[in-house]
């Protein structure tokens, strides 16, 4: 303890930086700027308006697909049903709505309660029987995909309505602003979630549940309810992200969701949110921007999708090594 007082000032500066890093993803922001500058210098046209908007649209898709992951990780869980629900959501508003002739909004009316019920069931079962949410979310993602795909058969048909594709086309505008609506949606969602997590009773209960589920029960937080809501919300977010992805790509591919499973995990973890907190969605936004920026620059330099996979894996390990540690076995005796 006395050593701290006598230490050279440089260590003090390090400490201040480390403290700042704990509060805010400083390092990630610096890396984001570095990646952007490298891109502008080495890739022609990278700094142009349309190019930047395209990167933002891709980041917005990644960010929107990571909302549920952020919330479930904050309550101390995990959500591996992202891919399944994304495809389920995407298929519902295209193929299924076409086959049943119920139109986009008809499908939407099935999607919302359906995702909420299935996701909520995961939260309930996982909390009630203390089952790793990992297993249950994987299973539920598969189930959701299956019950949407099952009746409709192998051939994937169906197109997104044109107004939907306008949401995320880089050349579209929002009320005169030169950005596509998806970016505006992302900004609004980010603000709403920041306010919810920081300044509402519900948000605080979510943090309490993640920080110490036993203490939260003693503090009269109904933690099972929190888990049910968190996982239901997460499933809904993934399904809606699927709708957004349809708007981006125009059609559906059963493998559409796969990349987003690890993108969502990587975005949350790289942003610096750890299981049970601390963390918030703003960090995930920074994580999604950083990942998208770095990937785009590297793809510009010939990075393949195989390299991307490896990079995401390595990045998850690296970020976890910095942020998350379990207790030593000695301390549990």
């Amino acid at each position: 303890m006395s050593a701290a007082a006598g230490s050279p000032p440089r260590r003090g500066a390090w400490r201040a930086l480390a403290a700042a890093q704990r509060r805010f993803p400083l390092l990630q922001l610096v890396l984001l700027v570095v990646a952007f500058v490298v891109g502008v210098v080495t890739l022609p046209g990278f700094g142009g308006g349309l190019s930047v908007v395209s990167v933002l649209v891709i980041a917005a898709l990644a960010g929107l697909a990571s909302i549920g992951q952020t919330i479930t990780i904050l309550v101390g869980g995990f959500d591996l049903s992202v891919a399944g629900f994304i495809v389920a959501g995407a298929l519902l508003v295209t193929q299924v709505s076409e086959q049943l002739g119920i139109g986009f909004w008809g499908a939407f009316l099935i999607l919302v309660p359906g995702a909420l019920v299935l996701g909520g069931l995961v939260g309930y079962l996982s909390h009630r029987f203390r089952i790793q949410p990992l297993i249950l979310t994987l299973a539920m993602g598969s189930f959701a995909l299956g019950i949407v795909r099952g009746p409709s058969g192998l051939a994937v048909v169906g197109q997104a309505p044109t107004w939907l594709t306008g949401l995320s086309s880089p050349i579209s505008t929002t009320f005169g602003l030169p950005v596509p609506p998806i970016i505006v949606i992302w900004v609004l969602v980010t603000i709403a979630l920041a306010v919810f997590l920081r300044f509402t009773v519900g948000g605080r209960r979510l943090y309490l549940t993640g920080a110490n589920p036993v203490a939260a029960e003693y503090a009269l937080v109904r933690t099972r309810r929190v888990w049910v809501i968190a996982f239901a919300f997460s499933a809904l977010c993934s399904a809606l992200a699927g709708v957004m992805l349809v708007s981006f790509s125009g059609n559906v591919d059963p493998n559409l969701g796969n990349p987003y499973l690890f993108i969502s995990l990587a975005a949350v973890i790289v942003g610096g949110t750890t299981g049970g907190g601390p963390g918030d969605y703003t960090r995930t936004v920074v994580g999604a921007l950083l990942l998208t920026m770095v990937t785009t620059v590297l793809v510009g330099h010939g990075l393949t999708s195989a390299d991307q996979q490896i990079m995401y894996g390595a990045v998850i390990l690296l970020a976890m090594a910095i942020y998350g540690r379990e207790r030593r076995i000695r301390d549990r005796v």
């Binding site: 605080r204 943090y207 203490a215 939260a216």
Partner: peptide, 21 residues
């Protein structure tokens, strides 16, 4: 440690846990 403290949260947040409303 196991039943009361929310260890990464602030003093204030720990204090208000049961009386948020």
């Amino acid at each position: 440690r196991a039943e009361s403290i929310f260890d990464w949260m602030s003093i204030l947040e720990n204090f208000t846990a049961t009386t948020l409303r």
